[in-house]
Simulated scan of single mutants.
Amino acid sequence: MTLLLLAGACLLAVTLGYVSLCRASPYGDCRKCRGFGFAMKTDRKGRIKRGKDCRRCKGLGKRIRVGRHLYNLWLHVYRDGSDTPAKTPASKG
């Protein structure tokens, strides 16, 4: 029982840590270009040169985190589902 409780506490700590990371910093470095925004190339002499813009992050070097993307999707669904139209007042006759 204590091993199960310990595993649950570790899972809770990791989840809360990731949630706080997504809240504090919703954008992380692009994994393909490592946050540079472009690919690194070497010329024939071996010197490093700037390559093409990264297609994954469109040259920005930042991408939205998976957790923040899921939160944004949930938020849009919640707002669209709870939007009630304004009722017009009944005319007195």
Results as ranks from 00 to 15, higher is better:
A86C: 08
V66L: 08
V77Y: 13
R65M: 00
S82K: 12
K52M: 10
K45D: 15
K87E: 12
C22P: 01
K32S: 12
R50H: 04
Y18P: 00
S82T: 15
V77W: 14
G28P: 01
C54E: 03
C10G: 04
L6W: 02
W74H: 12
C10T: 04
R56L: 10
K87Q: 11
A86Y: 03
K41V: 14
G37I: 00
A9V: 06
F36V: 01
G51Y: 06
L3K: 10
K62I: 04
Y18D: 09
F36R: 14
K87M: 06
R44D: 14
A24S: 11
T84K: 15
L12R: 05
G81Q: 08
L3T: 10
T88H: 03
C54N: 02
C54Q: 05
V19D: 02
G17P: 02
C54P: 02
W74N: 08
K58H: 09
D80P: 01
K49A: 00
V14T: 07
A7K: 13
G46T: 12
G59E: 05
H76N: 07
L4M: 09
V19T: 10
R55G: 12
K58I: 03
K32A: 12
A9W: 09
K52E: 15
L5Q: 15
R65I: 01
K49S: 09
K41H: 14
C33L: 09
D53H: 06
A24Q: 08
K92P: 01
L12P: 01
C30L: 05
K41D: 06
L21R: 13
R44M: 14
R34Y: 10
G93Q: 10
L75T: 03
M1Y: 06
K45C: 10
L73F: 03
A13F: 11
S91E: 13
V66A: 13
R79C: 04
R65H: 08
